[in-house]
């Protein structure tokens, strides 16, 4: 079985972001970048399937500027076999990303595509579902458990009411949630070895996809700041405050 994993380079999730004063966006210059956390879970899931002898090849793909090479290298160090960088400096919308990935799926014909459930920059949570539509494959989003039995995938999904289990036949698209696994930190020898694994760089323009944005972002603003509050001394004082609050609440 062949697995394709899509990984995105984003502002590291520990960085406290800053909105540019002119409202043009979030400052990414000089900010630490890393692989989107959900993508790490997707890579880990693929590597575990390979280690279990259930997958023979893991191809990792990232769409973005040249610097996205570093997240591909991270995935290769974790155990993926080869990488594809679809290079573009443009900030692409999720539909364009999904269309480019659909072209890669066309070329590579993977049995399983693993993605993160969302990228923590735009928090879109779109691409896996869009790719499933464009490639006409079944999808299982928000996966917290994956079991492969021959050509059938059993996926447990984290949903609003708890969890649910669904079955899907390969080829399929799965997006990873955080409780799917614990991503490994690649040891130094693996990091060294990653540099010798094949990494193809392909200009996005080569794929013949219309990448023109459909949305016009007018402004980006920081949320309203919460003013510092007061401290109370005891549970009794706190009860007074809560009772007063509840009495004031407007009934819905």
């Amino acid at each position: 079985m062949k697995i394709l994993v899509a990984v995105k380079r984003v502002v590291d999730h520990n960085v406290r972001i800053r909105v540019r004063p002119d409202g043009s966006g979030v400052e990414t210059n000089g900010v630490r970048m890393s692989m989107n956390p959900f993508c790490k879970h997707a890579v880990e899931a693929a590597v575990q399937l390979a280690e279990a002898g259930q997958a023979s090849e893991i191809v990792v793909v990232s769409i973005g500027p040249k610097a996205s090479n570093d997240v591909i290298l991270t995935a290769l160090a974790m155990g993926a076999h080869r990488g594809i960088l679809v290079e573009t400096d443009a900030a692409l919308e999720t539909l364009a990303i999904a269309k480019l990935l659909a072209k890669v799926v066309d070329e590579e014909q993977p049995d399983l595509v693993l993605l993160g459930k969302q990228a923590v920059d735009d928090d879109s949570n779109h691409v896996g579902q869009m790719l499933a539509a464009l490639t006409n494959r079944p999808q299982a989003t928000f996966a917290s458990e994956i079991k492969l039995d021959g050509h059938t995938l059993e996926v447990t999904r984290e949903v609003d009411y708890g969890r649910e289990t669904i079955d899907l036949a390969l080829p399929a698209i799965v997006t990873a949630d955080l409780r799917l696994n614990t991503p490994r930190n690649a040891a130094l020898p693996m990091v060294m070895k990653a540099r010798s694994k094949p990494l193809a760089v392909r200009p996005a323009a080569e794929f013949g996809v219309d990448l023109t944005p459909r949305l016009v972002v007018e402004s980006v603003a920081p949320p309203a700041e919460r003013a510092a509050g007061t401290t109370v001394a005891s549970a009794i004082d706190l009860a007074d405050i809560i009772v007063a609050d509840v009495n004031e609440m407007e009934a819905i």
Partner: peptide, 22 residues
């Protein structure tokens, strides 16, 4: 919701529309 997030991007791609979510 988890249903809306599951369904609407899939629908949008089917209709060649870029969705606006959340």
């Amino acid at each position: 919701s988890t249903t809306g997030k599951d369904v609407m991007p899939r629908l949008a791609a089917q209709l060649d529309i870029q969705p606006v979510t959340d």
